[in-house]
């Protein structure tokens, strides 16, 4: 019999450190498969964030640099400018890229830095125990918003991909989800396109993926997928938000 599904060479054999059912793992698998399919494992430098993905370097077989919280893009831009032939990507939670690191996301896009950013949006600070994030939804209960997020004092959810798509230096921006096999396939296509954009040197690319946090949402893995579909997908603009003509013709 022929193997029709197996672990990608883009991953090491180290088991993920994520909680059971956490979709961070699906996203890492997709990136690893894209690195393998584009044959760029050896040429890639990943930048790991602070957050639940802080151990990324253990799971991917490409090179990695660890950044301080929110600074993955700053570090990635430095690496890319110093080594322009390398493919550089950042892997960041929503707390990392849309709270403490917001300015880097905006300026990386404004300058059209030739890196790829992967944003994993679970609408919460996962690693630190489920605090409210700027991406938390209106009314969402977290440990720091036990009565539900009050947007009049803590703000509306920040839709980072929509913001970034408005900036001319961002040439490819997509917002996808990993809640079902069909959407997972779409998410992989978006990630692949984002890496191809960088290979072609066209500009900044961002893929935001809606992801679950069963532990801090206090839900089963399966209920978390349902909650994501019913509550996050209507709030965050989904799909390919920006595809420039040059990207279209890739």
């Amino acid at each position: 019999m022929e193997k029709v599904f197996a672990r990608s060479k883009g991953l090491t054999d180290v088991p993920f450190s994520f909680c059971p059912g956490c979709t961070h793992g699906i996203i890492m698998r997709l990136i690893a498969e894209v690195l393998e399919e584009l044959d760029i494992i050896e040429d890639t430098i990943g930048i790991s964030p602070v957050g639940c993905a802080g151990f990324s370097q253990d799971f991917f077989s490409c090179d990695f640099i660890g950044a301080a919280h929110g600074r993955a893009q700053a570090v990635g831009i430095g690496a890319k400018r110093a080594l322009p032939d390398k493919i550089v990507f950042t892997y960041q939670g929503d707390g990392d890229i849309a709270a403490i690191g917001t300015q880097h996301a905006i300026h990386a896009a404004a300058r059209g830095e030739k890196i790829t950013s992967i944003m994993v949006n679970n609408a919460i600070f996962g690693m630190t125990g489920g605090q409210m994030a700027p991406t938390s939804l209106e009314g969402m209960k977290t440990v720091t918003s036990p009565y539900g997020k009050d947007v009049s004092t803590t703000g509306y959810p920040i839709d980072m991909p929509t913001l970034v798509a408005n900036l001319p230096g961002a040439v490819y921006v997509a917002s996808v989800s990993v809640d079902s096999p069909k959407n997972i396939a779409q998410a992989k296509k978006a990630i692949k396109k984002a890496f191809k954009v960088q290979q072609a040197g066209l500009g900044f690319s961002l893929v935001s993926l809606l992801s679950t946090c069963p532990t801090n949402w206090n839900m089963s893995p399966s209920d978390s997928l349902k909650w994501l579909r019913e509550n996050m997908m209507p709030v965050y603009k989904m799909g390919e938000l920006k595809v420039t003509e040059e990207v279209e013709s890739l």
Partner: peptide, 8 residues
């Protein structure tokens, strides 16, 4: 999520 399955 944990790449625990192979299919043949």
């Amino acid at each position: 999520p944990d790449v625990a399955i192979e299919v043949y």
